Simulated scan of single mutants.
Amino acid sequence: MPATRTLPTAEAVDLIGLTRELAEKELAPRVGDAEAEERFPREVFRTLGRAGLLSLPYPEEHGGGGQPYEIYLQVLEEIAAVWSSVAVGVSVHALSCYGLATFGTAEQKREWLPRMLGGDLLGAYCLSEAHAGSDPGALRTRAVRDGDDYVLNGAKAWTTHAGHADFYTVMARTSDDGSHGISCFLVPADTPGVSADPPERKMGLTGSATATVRLTDVRVPAGRRLGAEGQGLAIALASLDCGRLGIAAVAVGLAQGALDHAVNYARERETFGRAIIDHQGLAFVLADMAAAVQSARATTLAAARLKDQGLPFGSEASIAKLVATDNAMKVTTDAVQVLGGYGYTRDFPVERYMREAKVMQIFEGTNQIQRLIIGRALKQHDRGTLRVRNGEN
């Protein structure tokens, strides 16, 4: 059963209704085959783009939806409850637009952002490298200035949409000044020298293409640098705060989908003359699953409201990502248990949900990294900020 939501506007209610309808009619009939065949559903992203769901958190003046993160994340949830690979893709696309939307010049935004947010283009985010996953400051991809251009060389690992994206937001080193020597570039996918390796063979999210992007003498005009030289890591880290909220919402939606399947099965399956949901032992498992989903949702939306109010939210985003993804792993594991032997077969989607939940604890910064971020924030903890919601201090 879908999540119960309290939404701030009639427009938000309509948006969630549209998302549920698209998920039911466009996503649900495709998800099983696409995941089994490890096929990237590019046409689904075009459908979502035409519906305006790829651009929700960005300004209307540039073709975005102008929605607060509180609403955008609930849209991600609704998609993830049906198809996590697609929900992750929507989050990654939003992440790939962040550098331009937030740090680009007015001219850069006017030139590129409307097309990126229009629904026809799909983005990818290139930060991680094979030797620099949790330590982005150690990246080695180079961007060397050559007249009015930069020439990029290197390889970016674990890139979602690699080989299918229309543009890549790439972090590359422009100097040897450690974390201050990284810059950000917007690279069209058809630029000569850009290529993608075959997709990784993953345990889950098999409908999402993940591969290494290779940059070989890729010439990019200096006008495609976002922000100043050396500002790239700051852009990347700010992007990741938003991306962590996106993945938290995807994890909540994934857990909601697993809970829904488990409850429906428990209502229909009978043992000893009654539905298994009527057995206290199993009812308690389902109750714990529901509590985990609700608490993860509340934590994620609380962090989103801080962002929407313009308040610091980095630590809260890490908490949301940690809580939501750990809870998703527990909920999906319990969903398999509820279905018993059937849960371990591919005749039911809960085994897929369980495989998909695992990576949620890994990408956008492992949950061990989230604990480091949270711990560091606690060292600097003050009394916090009091503010009337949607008002002034």
Rank of each mutant, 00 (worst) to 15 (best):
V336F: 01
G63L: 10
A196C: 07
E78N: 10
A51H: 02
M360R: 06
L286A: 02
S239L: 06
R42L: 15
Q256S: 13
G204T: 03
G17C: 09
A101Q: 05
E26P: 09
A209Q: 10
L237N: 14
S134G: 13
L121D: 03
R346D: 15
G163Y: 07
M289N: 02
M360P: 00
D197E: 15
R244E: 12
R5Q: 01
A266N: 01
I373Y: 06
D33Y: 11
P59S: 09
R224P: 07
R42W: 15
R140N: 07
T299L: 02
F40Y: 12
D278C: 12
V75C: 12
H180C: 00
A302G: 12
E38N: 14
R387P: 00
G391E: 06
P41Q: 06
E364F: 14
G207Y: 06
I276S: 01
K307Y: 11
N390I: 00
F284A: 13
D382T: 13
S208T: 12
L311M: 09
G99R: 07
A34T: 08
T325R: 11
L186D: 11
A34D: 14
L245R: 03
G257I: 06
Y344Q: 09
A296V: 05
E229N: 11
A287L: 14
R274P: 00
F40T: 01
L54R: 03
G343Y: 01
G257Q: 03
R371G: 02
I374F: 07
T212C: 08
R389Y: 14
D382A: 13
T159V: 15
S84L: 07
D382K: 08
R142C: 02
A28N: 14
Q380M: 13
D260E: 13
T332Q: 09
E24H: 15
D217R: 14
L122T: 12
V331P: 05
R387T: 06
H180I: 00
T345Q: 00
R274Q: 10
V92Q: 13
L240I: 10
R110P: 02
M1T: 03
L18P: 00
W83N: 10
V338R: 08
P221E: 10
M1I: 02
